[in-house]
């Protein structure tokens, strides 16, 4: 299959220097009385200026931990982060707390899953927007107010003057997420991380928020990392999609080739449930039979093997390596369709 640049992609990002470059990111949580838990395991991906990149995988695969590691928002204690996260060539993992504070909200914005709990219930919406401007743009509270008002207008909140003085509980779910987007984008960051921004919302509102995000990042030329467990969400949005399983990248590709011709059995499983948008929610949340509890250790096998319809003997004995061919990366011994070249094992590579 030949890959053409999809016409809906905002720009052809190939060739541009990456804005964000994640290399071998590994996050390990220490657990009392148990072995350390590797939540993110050697993850690498790039985000180019203005590009929208998806991080997709079911709950627990390490998406949020990845985003928090990038933002420097993991808990102070109890974890180790290795690898590198370079923004414009500066490794964020080596920056001081103060340097990261200057960067958050200014160069990278973030929005979260549950808009109600993500907003401070006792501070007016307007104040929660102006405080970012005061912090990063050196504005006074007064001069930040019209900017905040404009921002609320921009994210499609009607009657922004009134909303500025209202509190989160007075807004609907969709409006709250819009307000959070306004806060995250107030300083026009070059990158936005959206961690499951629509999961807590009604289906119709989901579509509106996704459309708004697409419109805004396009208009402001902001790069976007879209995190979701739902491939349907990335379908209309992402230039490139990274599929994660058990903390590792299992497949990466441009959106169209990946959607039309998934090589990894897990990607295939996720995709098979996408068209039935009205389908049973539970089925869509867990489209692949079995659960992560069945996972094998990546260190001596393919973690997905117990749930994989394509598994062969080798899958339980060796670790498949992530192999790049063109823009595609694949980690599988026995890919779907048979056209893709199967991976060698990590053991062989050493």
């Amino acid at each position: 299959m030949t890959t053409t640049t999809p016409e809906t992609a905002r720009r052809d990002p190939r060739g541009a220097e990456p804005l964000l470059s994640v290399r071998d990111l590994t996050v390990t949580f220490k657990r009392q009385g148990e072995d350390p838990f590797v939540a993110v395991d050697g993850l690498s991906f790039d985000v180019r200026p203005g590009q929208t990149v998806g991080l997709v995988g079911e709950s627990g695969c390490g998406k949020s931990v990845t985003s928090l590691a990038i933002m420097g928002l993991l808990p102070d204690r109890g974890n180790t982060v290795t690898g590198s996260v370079e923004l414009d060539g500066r490794d964020l993992l080596t920056l001081s707390n103060k340097q990261m504070r200057d960067l958050r909200g200014s160069d990278i914005g973030m929005i979260f899953q549950d808009p109600l709990s993500s907003l401070n219930p006792v501070v007016p919406i307007g104040r929660q927007v102006t405080e970012v401007l005061e912090r990063h743009k050196g504005m006074s509270r007064k001069s930040a107010k019209p900017v905040a008002r404009e921002m609320l207008h921009k994210v499609g909140i009607p009657d922004p003057d009134r909303r500025l003085t209202e509190y989160p509980h007075q807004l609907s779910g969709g409006m709250r997420q819009r307000a959070l987007i306004a806060m995250a984008l107030a300083c026009e960051p070059r990158m936005l991380i959206a961690d499951e921004p629509t999961t807590a919302l009604d289906v119709t509102i989901q579509a509106q928020i996704l459309a708004l995000l697409r419109e805004l990042v396009e208009e402001m030329d902001t790069a976007l990392i879209m995190i979701t467990h739902d491939l349907g969400v990335v379908a209309g949005l992402c230039d490139e999609v990274n599929v994660l399983y058990g903390g590792r990248l299992v497949e990466r590709g441009d959106r169209h080739p990946l959607f039309h011709d998934p090589h990894h059995p897990y990607t295939g499983g996720l995709l098979s449930s996408v068209p039935s948008l009205e389908g049973d929610a539970a089925e869509r949340l867990n489209p692949v039979p079995g659960s992560v509890a069945d996972n094998l250790p990546w260190t001596s096998s393919c973690a997905f093997a117990p749930r994989c319809s394509n598994a062969i003997e080798r899958c339980r004995e060796e670790t498949p390596a992530a192999v790049a061919s063109g823009d595609r990366v694949l980690r599988c011994f026995n890919p779907l369709g048979g056209q893709a070249s199967p991976a060698e094992s990590e053991e062989d590579r050493r």
Partner: peptide
């Protein structure tokens, strides 16, 4: 442990605020 404290941090606010 509240999400909004994480949001506040994600905005880069000073520890005082």
């Amino acid at each position: 442990d509240e999400d909004f404290v994480r949001t506040a941090r994600s905005k880069g606010l000073t520890s005082r605020v």
